[in-house]
Each structure stands twice: as C-alpha cells, then as structure tokens.
C-alpha cells in the first residue's frame, strides 16, 4: 500500500471520529443550556476548550452563546474542526484512497458528505438541533458499519482503526482534562447521588450516561466515573479500551509486515500505564498531570505512526 494511502485512511477516520465527538459535545452542552440556563455560558466555554478551539472561537465571537458555539462547531467553514469542515476533509481523503475502500464504505462517506453539507447549509435553529445532531451520529454509525461489515481485515483496516482510536483517546482525554476538578474525590461528594451536573455532562459527552448506570450500578462517585472513563475496558470510549485497540491494530501490522516499529513500543507503553491499576493511584499521581501526559503520549504515537508507515515521505 502507498504511504499516502495509509495516511489518507488514517486521517479519514480521524476526521470522521472528530465529527461524531463534536456532535456529542454539543449535545451535552445543549442539555445544560436547556436545563440550567445560568450555567450555559461557562458550559459552552468548556465545550469550546475541550474542542481545543478557544483562540479561533474568540477571534470570531465575543460571547459564548448557544448560537455562536453551535454555529462555530457545526458549520463554520473557517473552523477546520467544524463538523462541516471535517466531513469534507474525510470525504477528500476518501476520494484520495478510494481504491482502498469497498464500494459500501466509499458510498457511505460520500453520502455522509452530501447529507451533512445539505443539512448544515443554513444556521440550525435550537428546535432543530437535536435532530441534526442525531443525523450526524447516524451517519457516523453508517460509515462505521460499512467499514466493519465489508472491509478485509488487512493493513487497510488497521490504518482506519488507528485513526479512529488516536482521535478518540484525544477526545476522551480532553473531556477529562477540562473537567478534571469534577472528577477528583472530594469528601462532600462521597456517597452522594449522581446529581452533580458536571458528572452528567461528562458522561453524556461520551454517550455513557446510561451505560455507566448499567456497568457501575449505583456507585455514583467521582472516582467511579473517573475509573469508568479511564480504566474500564468495557467502555468503548475509555482511554484503556482505546489504547488496547491501538496496540491490537499495531500488532496486526507488525505481524503483517514482519516488523515491529517504534510506534508499537510507544503504544505499548501508553497501554501499560492504563492496565492493572487502581484509580486511586492515578489520583495520587495527579489526575490533571496524568491526563495531560496521556494527551502528549497519544500525540507522539500519532506522529510516530506517520513516520513508521511513510505517510508523507
């Protein structure tokens, strides 16, 4: 496979994952804006910070209003991470690597681009927002379904999955990073009901407010939520689960190519920081520092994959 093709696959799935994650963040923010209007502005701000878009946002807007934030994250073409922009980038990458995709995957990405471009042409009124966000999630599911259901399990598939999980680790880690204070064990929260609005937002941002309840039953504590997001292998957006997937896909590549690359060792190292440990030891290490270092290591893995598999030269 061409190095450029591997890069195109990897980035195509990073962009698709980003579109989906952005839609989740907006959904969680929107819920707070509806139910707790006093908290709305600071919540929208933290959504923008989580998206790593504070500077470009503030260059364009004075206030963190629902309309400004939603517009910026969904449809602003000058924002390279808006859903509209990343959908176009994903589709451009899909065109670039079209020979590596099944017809189903290509058609799903192309359709996603057509549907979302039409949907996001005009500003989205608040009443329409939930439906629009649902379409974005649905389209992501369509592409993922086509990928999982039709693609050969070879190096092509591995590069797609690597893009997905590098992006997802980044996203989950940012969500934790921005709200780490809400996840610290504090005496006043111990044993309390899950009534902390921040907890709910965090769980909604990763579409896990229901699964948490099922998985953890009624242990609604900050450490339990942190444990769920960081260390719980069952949770598909947890850092631990995603790191294990990275290791897995890189192991396939190593087997396929008969060569272990530096990125494999980096991923292994990241993974081992998330395996067989108690959440308490992470609090001892410092949650903020821990998540920060995960973000750095994840970025380094991404860069090393690009080098190891000659995406660019």
């Amino acid at each position: 496979m061409l190095g450029k093709t591997a890069g195109g696959l990897y980035w195509m799935f990073r962009f698709l994952e980003r579109a989906e994650n952005t839609a989740r963040l907006i959904e969680a923010g929107f819920r707070i804006a509806l139910t707790r209007s006093n908290d709305a502005e600071s919540e929208w701000k933290s959504v923008i910070i989580t998206s790593a878009a504070q500077k470009p946002f503030e260059e364009r807007h004075d206030k963190y209003t629902s309309a400004n934030v939603v517009n910026f994250l969904l449809r602003d073409e000058t924002n390279p991470s808006s859903v509209l922009s990343v959908t176009k980038s994903a589709r451009d990458n899909a065109r670039l690597v079209r020979t590596a995709l099944t017809t189903e995957v290509w058609a799903a990405v192309n359709e996603t681009w057509m549907v979302l471009t039409a949907l996001l042409r005009k500003p989205i009124p608040e009443t329409e927002l939930p439906a629009v966000l649902a379409v974005i999630r649905q389209q992501s599911a369509l592409v993922r379904g086509a990928l999982v259901g039709t693609m050969l399990r070879n190096d092509i598939f591995d590069f797609c999955r690597l893009g997905t999980f590098v992006e997802r680790i980044d996203s989950t880690a940012r969500i934790i990073d921005v709200k780490y204070y809400a996840l610290l064990p504090a005496p006043s929260f111990v044993g309390s009901r899950m009534d902390n609005v921040q907890w709910e937002t965090i769980l909604r941002s990763v579409s896990a407010h229901r699964s948490f309840r099922w998985a953890v039953e009624d242990d609604f504590t900050a450490p339990a939520i942190a444990d769920f997001l960081i260390l719980d292998d069952r949770m598909p957006r947890s850092l631990s689960h995603c790191a294990a997937q990275l290791v897995d896909n890189l192991r396939h590549l190593a087997k396929d190519y008969g060569e272990v690359k530096p990125s494999h060792e980096l991923a292994q190292k990241l993974n081992s920081r998330l395996k067989d440990r108690e959440i308490g030891s992470i609090f001892d290490e410092g949650l903020h520092e821990f998540v920060g270092s995960i973000l750095d290591e994840n970025a380094a893995i991404g860069r090393q994959i690009e080098i190891d598999y000659r995406f660019n030269n």
């Binding site: 496979m1 061409l2 190095g3 450029k4 093709t5 591997a6 020979t99 598999y309 030269n313």
Partner: peptide, 19 residues
C-alpha cells in the same frame, strides 16, 4: 493510483513510497 510526490528515482528506476 499514485501522484508525483509518491514517486522518486531510486537506483535508476522509478519507485513508489509504500508503507
């Protein structure tokens, strides 16, 4: 399917950059 920047001359032949 290659573009110019995927190719270079190596040992007197044209070669494409693969993974």
């Amino acid at each position: 399917l290659v573009e110019g920047h995927d190719l270079r001359v190596i040992d007197g032949h044209i070669a494409m950059r693969t993974t």
